[in-house]
Computed example of a mutant assay.
Amino acid sequence: MGKNFKELVDMETGEITVVESTYSPQTHEIRNIRQADYQKKWREQGANQFTWAFQRDIRTLLSENKINLTSLGAVLVLLPYLDNDGYLKRRTVEGKPMLTRKDIKEILKVSEVTLKRTLKALKDTGIIAVEGSRRNQIFKLNTDLHLRGQLPDGVIEAVRIQNKGIKALHEETNIKLDTLGFLYLLIPYISYKSCMLVKNVNKPEELINSLSMEELCEELKMADRTVNKYLKLKFKYSFKDGYYEVPAFVFVTNPSYPKKKATLINPMLVRRNMEITGEIRFSELDCVFKSMSKKL
């Protein structure tokens, strides 16, 4: 980035202030130093940023509505832009301006046709509300399904969607939205402590309550070939000691029941345990995840 100087004019007093700016030849973006500092601090503080997903309400949503995986994946990609009031905003920018339709298209990396179809599906199912005119639309997520900020009193069945992990999947691994949509389907099944997929999140994490791949196929009403494809997903993730390729899912067995494999989802993507608040280091990952990862 090169240094530039930009004149700011006070429209009430006419006073002109010259501020130092930075210029990116890649994006042609000019930012003043204050704006650059804001973004730097936001990113540094954002390593563990997350949004809440309410398991019970999402289970009801998925059972009552037919919505394709691409649209559900779009929800996860947009969650990092969710503000406390439910509106989608450019949170890396001081003042947090609302996301526009053009912003959403660029974030999702989709065509106009796919964007139109996706927004219609999200509107029809009540996941998103669109306000304003066609040229000046703003977007609000249903806060009964997703929320940023403090949990309402008494809510326990809530999952943390880890924004950094979702971004790593979408931006660095460059997977399609339908794969992220598959992750969305799993939100109602994430157990409290170990990120195991279970039949009932209110019951103990015992093998009888866990979901094997076969049981998961039956629960989701999806072909085993399709589910197996999604469960093999790996992605690049930046830990403090470097980049690693890590699996999105691992399978564990109990020696007493060798024929049944329980399914665990990577806590870098989603987690439910309220006691885990900071960013997980690679050394703190479950050993079964570490054994299937490699440093890049």
Results as ranks from 00 to 15, higher is better:
residue 274 M to H: 15
residue 74 A to F: 05
residue 70 T to E: 06
residue 157 E to A: 15
residue 80 P to G: 04
residue 148 R to M: 07
residue 69 L to Y: 00
residue 25 P to F: 09
residue 54 F to C: 02
residue 202 N to M: 13
residue 18 V to S: 08
residue 294 K to R: 14
residue 272 R to S: 06
residue 146 H to E: 01
residue 75 V to T: 08
residue 259 K to C: 07
residue 75 V to H: 03
residue 161 I to R: 00
residue 240 K to G: 06
residue 79 L to Q: 04
residue 73 G to F: 00
residue 285 L to A: 01
residue 43 R to L: 08
residue 44 E to N: 08
residue 56 R to E: 10
residue 268 M to G: 01
residue 170 H to I: 01
residue 162 Q to Y: 02
residue 134 R to V: 12
residue 57 D to C: 09
residue 1 M to W: 02
residue 215 E to H: 07
residue 18 V to Y: 10
residue 255 P to K: 15
residue 156 I to S: 11
residue 138 I to Q: 14
residue 122 L to K: 02
residue 51 T to I: 05
residue 130 V to E: 14
residue 85 D to G: 09
residue 226 T to D: 12
residue 42 W to D: 05
residue 113 V to W: 10
residue 285 L to F: 05
residue 165 G to N: 04
residue 130 V to P: 06
residue 147 L to D: 03
residue 103 D to T: 06
residue 263 T to E: 02
residue 162 Q to V: 11
residue 87 Y to Q: 06
residue 86 G to Y: 06
residue 282 F to G: 00
residue 267 P to F: 01
residue 168 A to R: 00
residue 145 L to V: 09
residue 268 M to F: 03
residue 18 V to W: 12
residue 193 K to Y: 14
residue 85 D to M: 07
residue 56 R to L: 04
residue 172 E to D: 12
residue 18 V to I: 15
residue 7 E to A: 08
residue 293 S to D: 05
residue 133 S to F: 09
residue 165 G to R: 00
residue 200 N to E: 12
residue 35 Q to R: 08
residue 241 D to L: 04
residue 124 D to S: 11
residue 53 A to I: 08
residue 8 L to A: 10
residue 76 L to K: 04
residue 242 G to N: 11
residue 137 Q to G: 10
residue 186 L to T: 05
residue 102 K to Q: 13
residue 272 R to N: 07
residue 92 T to G: 13
residue 89 K to Q: 11
residue 86 G to F: 02
residue 254 N to S: 09
residue 255 P to L: 09
residue 233 L to H: 09
residue 269 L to D: 02
residue 293 S to C: 05
residue 103 D to Q: 06
residue 138 I to V: 14
residue 59 R to Y: 12
residue 109 K to C: 10
residue 112 E to M: 08
residue 140 K to Y: 09
residue 264 L to T: 05
residue 114 T to M: 07
residue 28 H to C: 07
residue 110 V to G: 05
residue 46 G to Y: 04
residue 165 G to E: 03
residue 153 D to C: 02
residue 121 A to V: 03
residue 263 T to N: 01
residue 14 G to P: 11
residue 141 L to G: 01
residue 32 N to G: 03
residue 223 A to C: 08
residue 19 V to L: 13
residue 249 F to E: 00
residue 279 E to A: 10
residue 14 G to H: 10
residue 173 T to D: 11
residue 72 L to W: 01
residue 25 P to A: 12
residue 110 V to F: 01
residue 17 T to Y: 14
